[in-house]
Write a protein that binds this DNA or RNA. Structure first.
Lengths: 117, 117
DNA sequence: GTCTTCTTCAACCGGAAGGTTGAAAAGGAG
DNA sequence: CTCCTTTTCAACCTTCCGGTTGAAGAAGAC
């Protein structure tokens, strides 16, 4: 899976990873601290962090043996832009459909609407 | 995978499905029409549409044998809200960090627990 | 040096994802 | 009714994903 957008969406498709992101939004944390609340092994959380890191959502620095994890907010823009683009497009299309229907009082389409029975 | 947010993120983690969404933002389409550009079988696209439908991103009506697929824009809000929340939080924290660093020319404690008096 | 802590690497396992082929519904069109 | 089109269902296969255990790096602490 090469493209960045897929990596970000995929990374956030997991509830545990979203929870990690939520906690990192409050404060940086180490792998051990992050793993504490969950009943999975530290290794599993380390894997989750690798996924988040590959997606560009977090970065890790070094501080003695510890590797504090930091949330990188910029990548969110990628998603937001993608989402907003198609949302706007879809909503505009929706609006336009309303207009078309208003301008078309006749010309019975096959849609089984109420049909003025 | 029960929760709606995971379903939406997961659905959009696939490039083909994102492309389908992009095309549906322009106009509704049938399964056959949607499948045409890709070099996968129609069945595969039908599966993709099922994923998108389960995520609430598209809906299907019935029109003779055809099942026109329609993009539902509302679900995007779920994601947008989630994303914006943590992005804002992270950015605010970033700003605050700048302030802290400016007010703290020295004194480097390991900054373990919060104790944000 | 040795010990301890924090983290990651490697191998493995079960299940879900995305693809295929083949057949079956569902509904016109002849 | 018989065909044809559109779509989905059912198996099946392969790869990826999230989890495990066990061992190995990395960097203080003693």
């Amino acid at each position: 899976m090469a493209d960045p957008l897929s990596r970000v969406f995929s990374a956030l498709a997991d509830p545990t990873r979203r929870d990690i992101v939520a906690r990192l939004a409050v404060a940086d944390a180490t792998v051990n601290e992050l793993a504490a609340p969950y009943d999975v092994t530290v290794q599993a959380v380390s894997k989750h962090l690798k996924v988040l890191e590959d997606a560009g959502l977090v970065s890790r620095s070094r501080e003695a043996q510890r590797r504090p994890v930091h949330l990188e907010a910029e990548v969110f823009d990628l998603m937001t832009k993608w989402i907003e683009r198609y949302r706007r497009q879809a909503e505009e299309r929706y609006r336009r459909l309303d207009d078309v229907l208003r301008d078309m009082p006749d010309a019975g389409p096959p849609a089984q609407e109420g049909t003025t029975s």
